[in-house]
Computed example of a mutant assay.
Amino acid sequence: MNTGAIIHDLLDWIDNNLDSRLDINSVARRAGYSKWHLQRIFKEHTGHPIAEYIRAKKLQKSIERLTQSDEPILNVAIALGFDSQQSFNRSFKRQFGKAPGALRRSAGCSEMQQMYR
């Protein structure tokens, strides 16, 4: 299997395991590469560091959970592997320009959800 196919398989695995605790060690184990080599080839193929890709995907998934349920924001944050609601809020606001609670309260929730799919 070439590295492109391995990265594609790894992207699918990450996307299907966003509710799990994903870190460089677990992703490297899954890929069968050292974490240093994996980070290099991952960035070559995707243009993004692994941690940045995982965080962005988790934040996209959080939009679905925030807009399709009344689940508390803390539960969403913890379920997606953030250490605290504060770190989740910071990451969310940096990525989308508004806090998760503001997104949930806004009238354009479905518009924003479509924008980040």
Rank of each mutant, 00 (worst) to 15 (best):
A51Q: 13
R94G: 08
A107I: 08
P49S: 15
G101L: 01
N89T: 13
T67L: 13
I78K: 15
S91H: 09
V27N: 04
A31D: 08
N16A: 07
R55C: 10
N89K: 14
Q113E: 11
H37G: 12
L11C: 05
G47S: 01
M115I: 11
E52W: 13
G4L: 00
P49Q: 15
K35A: 08
L103Q: 04
T67I: 15
F92V: 04
S26D: 03
N2Q: 06
A56D: 13
T67S: 15
I41N: 04
R65I: 11
D12L: 05
L18Y: 00
V27M: 10
A99M: 12
S84L: 04
K58R: 15
P49V: 12
P72I: 07
D15I: 00
H48D: 08
L11P: 02
R30T: 04
I24S: 07
Y33D: 06
F42G: 05
R94T: 08
G97C: 02
R55E: 06
A102R: 08
D9N: 10
P72C: 01
R94V: 05
K93W: 02
Q114M: 10
R117N: 10
E111Y: 08
A28T: 07
N75K: 15
N89Q: 11
A77N: 12
L22A: 09
I7R: 02
F88R: 12
D83S: 10
F82C: 10
M1H: 05
Q86Y: 13
G97N: 00
S34R: 09
S62Q: 04
L38R: 08
I54E: 02
H37K: 15
D19F: 02
T3C: 10
S87M: 08
T3W: 00
H8V: 03
H48F: 08
L18N: 06
N16G: 09
I7S: 00
Q60N: 14
G108H: 14
N89I: 03
P49W: 04
I41H: 07
R90L: 11
Q113L: 14
A99S: 14
D9H: 05
V76I: 15
E44C: 04
S20R: 11
K61H: 13
Q68Y: 08
K61C: 10
I7H: 02
A79Y: 04
L10P: 00
S110W: 00
F96C: 03
D23R: 13
Y53I: 05
P49H: 14
A77I: 14
A31F: 05
G108V: 07
R94M: 02
I63C: 10
K98C: 10
Q68M: 08
N17C: 01
C109L: 12
R105H: 08
N16T: 01
H48G: 05
W36Q: 12
Q113T: 12
A56P: 03
